[in-house]
Design a protein around this nucleic acid. Structure first.
Length: 299
DNA sequence: CGTATTTGACCTGCGC
DNA sequence: GCGCAGGTCAAATACG
């Protein structure tokens, strides 16, 4: 699948995207996750509303968030089977052969990835996931696990894999939008580390203002609606972007309502940012590359 | 017994 | 066209 191409993939090598350079910037995952990256922040979220509700966030971990810009790009490639039909199991007749599926086209869902320093592969995020596959990843000793939201009407999926370069780094990629609320908390379990964001915009603002060190490529971000507000879908989007014991210090601070002086605009002016973006590409050749398409990498 | 996980088979897209 | 790699399916199995 085309979407599965990463920096290590062939179609990335030829691109001149900022991540794919070979100079400057960070030199390791550790550096990346330690929050030493600076500049390059560039948010581009879909207009949306929703309030962010800060709460205590554990600082026990480091996370770098990346977003998939291909949110609105229809994925005409892909295999049919996984299509995004929201009521898949119900609509698929038992006899539906794969030949039928072949005719379908998968629609690319918004994706959001986190690089997390954690010993736990599958981080708790408030939703229930069912593992439906695991594959060995090329150039990586660690397998990639595929999860799907257990809600039959929900098409959200997520992939989890460890960085081949730094086993302590877990890369979690969410794809799709939850059509329901979390099965637990968030507010009720704030102490658990779950991070309830009401909207992508809210999180974007927070990160932009509070985490200049993080590189956040242009993309659309979809976050889960607050589970406490049953069916108050003011924000239809809803990808879980929470990770127990995983958010980096910067994000942790962000969640606590702290703000840093640096602004996104200033960072964008930084010439170093480009180098850092390029360096980021070297960080991981797996999911990270997967969520950053060539189109957005240019520039 | 219901639910979740494992795992090999299968499908698709892409590069050569 | 072929092989490879990513992604998914679904039967078998494990677990509470």
């Amino acid at each position: 699948m085309e979407e599965a191409k990463g920096p290590a993939g062939s179609d990335m090598s030829g691109e001149s995207w900022p991540f794919n350079g070979d100079s400057g910037g960070i030199s390791s995952l550790d550096e990346l996750c330690s929050g030493r990256i600076s500049g390059g922040i560039e948010w581009s979220f879909p207009a949306g509303s929703g309030d962010f509700e800060p709460f205590d966030q554990p600082e026990s971990s480091d996370t770098v968030a990346l977003v998939d810009p291909k949110v609105e790009a229809p994925d005409t490639s892909a295999r049919s089977g996984e299509a995004v039909s929201s009521s898949s199991s119900d609509e698929k007749p038992p006899e539906t052969p794969k030949s039928v599926k072949k005719g379908q086209k998968r629609t690319r869902q918004p994706r959001f990835a986190f690089m997390t320093k954690s010993e736990i592969d599958h981080l708790e995020d408030g939703y229930r996931w069912r593992k439906y596959g695991q594959k060995a990843v090329k150039n990586s000793p660690f397998p990639r696990s595929y999860y799907r939201c257990t809600n039959s009407k929900c098409t959200v999926k997520k992939r989890v894999e460890r960085s081949s370069q730094d086993p302590s780094i877990v890369i979690t990629t969410y794809e799709g939008q939850h059509c329901h609320h979390t099965v637990t908390f968030p507010r009720a379990n704030m102490n658990s580390g779950i991070t309830p964001f009401h909207s992508a915009t809210a999180l974007a603002e927070r990160i932009a203002l509070a985490t200049p060190q993080l590189y956040l490529p242009t993309a659309n971000l979809h976050l889960p609606s607050n589970s406490n507000r049953s069916n108050s879908n003011t924000d239809s989007s809803s990808i879980t972007v929470s990770a127990a014991a995983s958010l980096p210090a910067q994000v942790g601070a962000m969640l606590r309502g702290e703000r840093m002086a640096a602004s996104v605009s200033n960072m964008e002016k930084s010439e170093e940012s480009l180098h850092e973006k390029r360096a980021l590409s070297q960080v991981d050749e797996g999911l990270l590359g997967d969520i950053v398409p060539p189109a957005m990498r240019k520039g």
